[in-house]
Design a protein around this nucleic acid. Structure first.
Lengths: 216, 216
DNA sequence: CTTTATTGATTGACCGTTCAATAAAGAATT
DNA sequence: AATTCTTTATTGAACGGTCAATCAATAAAG
């Protein structure tokens, strides 16, 4: 066997260079020649390891998504069957993990969001991720409130997270992670406090869950 | 004077064609030849009326922003000094106005957001708009709560609006305008209800009710 | 006639991909 | 230990294609 083991090294280098290049020039002007130069390799190597520019971009998005998934599940596995609030906080914290809140990653995310509307492979990745966030949130809220209410709480929280994140990416001062988390926590608190609000309570009287009363 | 008065007609045509083309192909592939073909004119006309592609894109973003501003202020001028809740609802409604929730406009918005990170003229427009939304919200919340609390309420609501809007643009089923407005209304209600929460009350003293008794 | 409106072929720049050629690292052989 | 040998790694010039901008020429309205 000859010179081997370069693949994982080059892939990491190139994905890193892609993030930096998108950060500096934007997705449209992140040409393979710029990316290759930043990674310190020739352009041909990109096609060799990623089947061209599109493959590299897709791999870059996959990389960020994997980091996000890890950031969330690392926090949640520690929790076991902790109360919903703890899991919701863990999901929030994962979404605002350091790996997701650097300038280059936020910019790349936003670029991919826009691009995913017209690019099938990216669209698939983005939708899988969206649904995962939503259904994780929904499952936790559903532990303490009826399904229709849990759905709305999840929709609201998912939108709030994405919105904080989006505004952080666009704001000149960047994202204030601590404040973003606090605002999301507040939203969780309000939603959980509404569990037994007068309008919702009128139907039943179970102290913890209302497992019998889920009509749409 | 010879043949005159084409400018406003062509400008409207071309902006409309730009929105449709971005909707269909995405910003990166919205070439002047595609836009011109859709508008039924030649490519040269774009440079003639907009000083090139960038000018057309900037004018398109300006056009959407103007519509947004109109949608909001039309609703608010009717209100006079109505209570904060009414103004906040008007701002929400304006942001979810029909002119802002069509597929092509939402897609274009998202594309411009991403692009504005690397393109000065778009960045300026986008930031002016961001600040306008934030400070409008802030001013209304501040009428019934201390400034620091109003700021957080405004930050949260702004993020929620943008997030709902973003997720609507990306979701396969599109944006459910009614539901988005309801979720935003709910957020407003919760924030206004917190006006006299124990933690916040220690400094102030205004007559209000406790424990979730809101009027519509 | 004069000015505005409009065309569309041309031009120059740049981009992604390809591929023949070269380098380098281990394995096999001597 | 020196030598081929073989496979992977890597280069970068060449190619075909596309795009935005330009501009000389034409059309049309007063």
């Amino acid at each position: 066997m000859p010179k081997v083991g370069m693949q994982p090294i080059r892939r990491r280098q190139l994905i890193e260079a892609t993030l930096a290049t998108i950060d500096e020039f934007g997705l449209a002007d992140a040409t393979i020649s710029r990316i290759a130069k930043r990674a310190g390799v020739s352009t041909g190597i990109i096609s060799h390891y990623f089947n061209g520019r599109d493959g590299l971009l897709e791999a870059t998005m996959r990389h960020i998504l994997t980091d996000l998934g890890t950031a969330v599940s690392e926090r949640r596995t520690l929790l076991g069957d902790a109360p919903p609030r703890a899991h919701l906080h863990a999901i929030i914290d994962g979404n605002f993990d350091r790996s997701q809140t650097s300038r280059s990653v936020m910019k790349t995310w936003l670029a991919f969001w826009a691009s995913s509307m017209h690019h099938r492979p990216l669209q698939t990745l983005q939708r899988v991720n969206d649904r995962r966030l939503y259904s994780n949130l929904c499952a936790q809220f559903h532990r303490v409130m009826p399904k229709h209410q849990a759905r709305d709480a999840a929709r609201g929280l998912a939108a709030l997270i994405d919105g904080l994140w989006l505004r952080g990416a666009l704001a000149p001062e960047g994202l204030n992670v601590e404040r973003a988390r606090r605002l999301a926590y507040d939203y969780v608190r309000e939603q959980l406090a509404r569990v037994e609000t007068p309008e919702e309570r009128s139907a039943q009287a179970a102290p913890r869950q209302r497992s019998g009363a889920q009509s749409h």
